[in-house]
Design a protein around this nucleic acid. Structure first.
Lengths: 243, 243
DNA sequence: ATTACGTTTTTGGCATACCAAATGCCACGA
DNA sequence: TCGTGGCATTTGGTATGCCAAAAACGTAAT
């Protein structure tokens, strides 16, 4: 094995030469198809039509300009993610979550985020914690979140993702991101509701304060209760959305 | 190869006959390969050899008696699970987790389990909660867990899985099962350690008591702290295991 | 018109062939 | 001895073709 032996005083190749960046891995068609399909699925409003949304391998391979093989591998990956379900000899159906499933996911999210909050109180820098306020700097008493629901919704998601990231726990980050992807479609119509938006911002600030105070238990509790509140809200008011 | 074609059976078929159970879906080779490979990976001790463990598509397809196509689809799924990583033009490598990653996973597990405990206090039946003690009925002051580490380890895992199941939250169940699969390999050598085993059983009983008492906060705290204790233990003593 | 039944079409599952990049081996030459 | 270049091999990536199960369609009998 040609291991880079640093003591090798070879005249031909100095260790001090320009940085070679390992070239470009050039993602495979399989991964490209995966990304493309994932994005397409997340973009569409799955809960709009009553009939199940179906995918066709051959149609997809034609549209993406590749053969069925990488498409099928991408489908297999998406199925692992829980985005699609292929029924043998029937077709590939985009999975629709029930309200109960969404609520369940939000609860798991709450669990992970509260743990993130716990970790943050012991490891994150004050500067980074305080920076979380910036996500809401465009809102104030003069510019209420409930009057700019769409914009606030984006800031909201960005805040939560930044919060989790502060935990410096890749597992927590990845798991919550996955959950968020599933919840998001449903969420477009829920988190943005004015009635919840009003209480959202103060709760966020409360979480930040607890983090800054290094109050582990309080931060955990506030983070948990905030997201559990969303779960309860969806459970109570989600009926009008679908099913 | 000409398969013996089974001709369409009876001419008339009454709707009133026995319940047909949708036939057998007969899992595809793709899924069979997925299960087989997953089990094989979990069974082997990945942390035994210094060199990375590699898989070969063609060798696998030959051993399992199927073509490369379903094998590749199975590999794609395993990669989504994080069990393997395929490096283009290089090979498929079984992923080895670092101690830090294992600790991180255990923390996420703690988060999910504490949420499960929380839910259980509000929904589970007393009878089902109490039944959790049965997992440890073979242990007592006369038969200490630390004297039967292997056996206790199995009971331990079964207890945790049963606990999570009581939450009746499919998401929590699935997520923790996934995490457990990853931790398990590492875990064979950690959770079974005598020094931790001694304190494990009392903590479990403490969790059960809090659940029975419907003390949401206490149950959550005990469940969390118990598993976080394992994380701390691995972080402190896991060095001897690998890396 | 409706039902029964045979045919065609569609669709996912699987096998196979070929490609190109990465490696390894080995002969050749300084 | 050591490095160099090239050829054969290995390996994952992709394209294609065929198969059988199902659905879709069509047609004839009641």
């Amino acid at each position: 094995m040609p291991e880079p032996k640093q003591t090798k005083a070879s005249p031909t190749m100095a260790d001090t030469d320009i940085a070679i960046v390992r070239i470009a891995p050039e993602t495979s068609f399989k991964n490209k198809a995966y990304e493309a399909l994932k994005e397409a699925i997340l973009k569409m409003d799955i809960y709009a039509t009553p009939e199940p949304v179906m995918l066709d391998e051959r149609a997809l391979s034609e549209r993406l300009g590749v053969s069925r093989t990488p498409i099928r591998e991408a489908i297999a990956m998406l199925e692992q993610d829980g985005f699609v379900k292929t029924v043998p000899r029937r077709g590939i159906v985009v999975v629709r979550r029930t309200k109960a499933e969404i609520v369940d996911m939000i609860r798991a999210w709450a669990a992970l985020e509260s743990m993130a909050a716990r970790l943050i109180t012991t490891t994150a820098r004050k500067k980074d914690i305080s920076a979380l306020r910036d996500f809401f700097k465009d809102f104030s008493d003069d510019r209420l979140p409930q009057d700019h629901v769409e914009e606030y919704s984006k800031a909201n998601i960005a805040f939560h993702q930044a919060l989790i990231s502060l935990s410096e726990s890749p597992v927590l980050v990845d798991l919550t991101n996955d959950l968020l992807l599933h919840v998001r479609g449903y969420r477009q119509l829920t988190i943005g509701r004015k009635d919840r938006t009003a209480t959202s911002l103060p709760e966020h600030l409360g979480i930040i304060e607890a983090l800054e105070a290094r109050d582990t238990e309080l931060a955990e509790k506030r983070a948990r209760d905030h997201t559990l509140g969303l779960a309860a809200y969806v459970e109570a008011h989600g009926q009008e959305l679908f099913t």
